[in-house]
């Protein structure tokens, strides 16, 4: 699922929660120094939280339905006709 915070690395600076363009995080500093990944299905995969985290504590996981479909390029060639 979308962003994952490494609790060991996170310093609780709040940057990720502050800058996310769709407010995936909630940061309740009094309860937990580490932001909560609260609205995970709203992640746009823009990578801002990964890029701007000063501790390198955020990684993204791309949801299964969004997998990038691809094939080996060498298979793009004429096929032998199949006979019934």
């Amino acid at each position: 699922m979308p962003p994952v915070i490494d609790r060991e690395k996170c310093t609780g600076c709040g940057t990720c929660a502050e800058i996310c363009p769709v407010q995936v995080f909630r940061h309740h500093k009094d309860n937990d120094k580490i932001p909560e990944v609260k609205f995970r299905r709203e992640c746009w995969h823009c990578n801002a939280c990964v890029l701007d985290c000063p501790a390198g504590a955020v990684s993204l996981s791309v949801p299964l339905p969004c997998m990038l479909l691809h094939v080996d390029a060498s298979t793009l060639k004429p096929r032998e006709p199949r006979h019934v």
């Binding site: 890029l51 993204l60 791309v62 990038l68 691809h70 094939v71 080996d72 390029a73």
Partner: peptide, 20 residues
């Protein structure tokens, strides 16, 4: 960069793979 990280992790290499 999210795309690049993902492709690196999944071993999707534009030099070898065609993307639909």
């Amino acid at each position: 960069t999210a795309l690049l990280d993902y492709m690196d992790r999944e071993g999707i290499d534009p030099a070898r793979h065609a993307v639909e």
